[in-house]
Design a protein around this nucleic acid. Sequence first.
DNA 1: CTGAAAGCGCTTACAG
DNA 2: CTGAAAGCGCTTACAG
Lengths: 331, 331
Amino acid sequence: MGRPTIIDVAKAAGVSKSTVSLVLQNSPSVSDSTRKDVRRAMQEIGYVYNRAAANLRSAQIGLVGLVINDLKNPFFTEFATAVQMAISAAGYATVVANTNEDPALQARTIAAMIEHGVSGLIISPVYGDEEASFGQLARAGIPAMQVLRKVSLRTDLFPFASPDYAAGGRLAAEHLIASGARRIAFVGGIEGRSVTTERQSGYLAVLAEHGIEPRLMPGRPTRAFGRECADRFIDALDCDAAVCFNDLVALGVSSGFASRGRVVGREFRLVGFDDIEEAAQSYPPLTSVQCDIARFGRDMAATLMAWLSAGEVPAPENRSAVKLVVRSSSA
Amino acid sequence: MGRPTIIDVAKAAGVSKSTVSLVLQNSPSVSDSTRKDVRRAMQEIGYVYNRAAANLRSAQIGLVGLVINDLKNPFFTEFATAVQMAISAAGYATVVANTNEDPALQARTIAAMIEHGVSGLIISPVYGDEEASFGQLARAGIPAMQVLRKVSLRTDLFPFASPDYAAGGRLAAEHLIASGARRIAFVGGIEGRSVTTERQSGYLAVLAEHGIEPRLMPGRPTRAFGRECADRFIDALDCDAAVCFNDLVALGVSSGFASRGRVVGREFRLVGFDDIEEAAQSYPPLTSVQCDIARFGRDMAATLMAWLSAGEVPAPENRSAVKLVVRSSSA
DNA sequence: CTGAAAGCGCTTACAG
DNA sequence: CTGAAAGCGCTTACAG
């Protein structure tokens, strides 16, 4: 016989199904006693609201898509959980998917989310083939924000927001120079990608101002790459400090130093980027550019909600402030 | 005018809407030329399938809920991404939510997912008030698996699966004894919780067999607690080894030792639990009980799919094999 | 304050 | 192989 419907509730309560529907929507035009009867009937027969049926008739609201390029990276995990919890607190549900840096998977994921009727999306996109993913959204006319990485240039359609990476690069480099470092490398980040370019740009600008030669060591944003670089610093390169593309690389450098019996700090100053939770917990504690990613996630959720419910289109580009948290890895 | 519907497609292609529906379902009873006409019409007018409407009429399939107690913990992150990607590969969508160890939030989350019409759920539950969460599922008759933590005892309704924690505790303790350790602590895990009890039980059994006095140091499953314990080991306690509740605690102990200028290994042997990715990358590399959580996640996805689509009810309780990965933190 | 009717975009028998 | 009709569980005007 399946789940009870509003018709079953109406029968049990002795009213019409319209009245039940009004109760469901907390309409003020239902008398208190009727409301109570209906609510009781729902309890008794175990009624559950069918949101899909409701959405079919009325405007589609209530489902938001969250598409993340690498959900296993703690920086993105923290972002995604903050967004999801804020959206859920606002009464929306979230479909989350990890696209694993795979453009084809991202395109399929977005197609599936559109079919499932999401009202809007927040996308931390993969690099590559943006047309396959963003083209569908443009045609469907679904509000979508791109965050953390600017991949589509159509920021009129897909407003972009991220922490101010360039400013973070500046802060890191200035701090190292102020601490006395002079031979400063920039470690990690895949060449040509927007986030890499931006994080490097602040570093490059500061070094140029001080007449210091930059040393770029591009590479994957992983602990493993950081460990490799630690060996290069110890065996071959003449550096006294490094700004890392992210904290994972920095933690890799730090652990590489440890495995060679050395400790980053005064002799080799190290700065990470993102300030993931682990940065403060590792030994030595890691100096890092703090993006306050949980707060950023909550802001993005609020921005999308305002877009969906009040039609407030976000600014095409928005950069949030960052700051440097100094710990003993650089002092 | 809104999005095009199958009626618009039917008009554009010059067929009835039933035929369009059959094309959508890849029914063999539509001629190839008709199918082509219909597909072309869909392209031209920018039709997108409305899955909610389809589900309303046919059996509800296609949406699976994934409810996770602490999505920021890398162990659960790795589990959740494995499940989500396997489910998505099977053509289902996933609604994911982090319940943040909050029973009330878990109950609200599950209620919302039921309203959104999930066909089934995979739940790594929070401890406490299980009736509020599982009661709804029982009444709604929705297939749901509890994984990683056994919270509801109704395993007939909510089949339970997890790695074999007790066996993991055994392996860890046996390895330490075989390596020569004699004063072995068990560090972390909140007292009385099922996972703690199980992980401790293997350790306790092995120590009893060898006539060794156990030393339980219960506590939060975090890096911070691990660091605290490192100080206690160095300053006060007479121990030569520890089995940790999870890798986070173990990494905390290891980093606590490092901050005191010492390195875990021969002088103090350390074993973690879960074998998260970081275990192999940290210094010194961490010996850990490997649960192969990604594979476990894919298995759970397959089990739920089989339940939903073929009615194969999972066994009430299932434990998957674990193994010990020995690295230098214990040798 | 409440009821009867139409409709949201699909699928599902049932004819032809 | 294709079409006309009913129905999935709601909401939305419109009467009363």
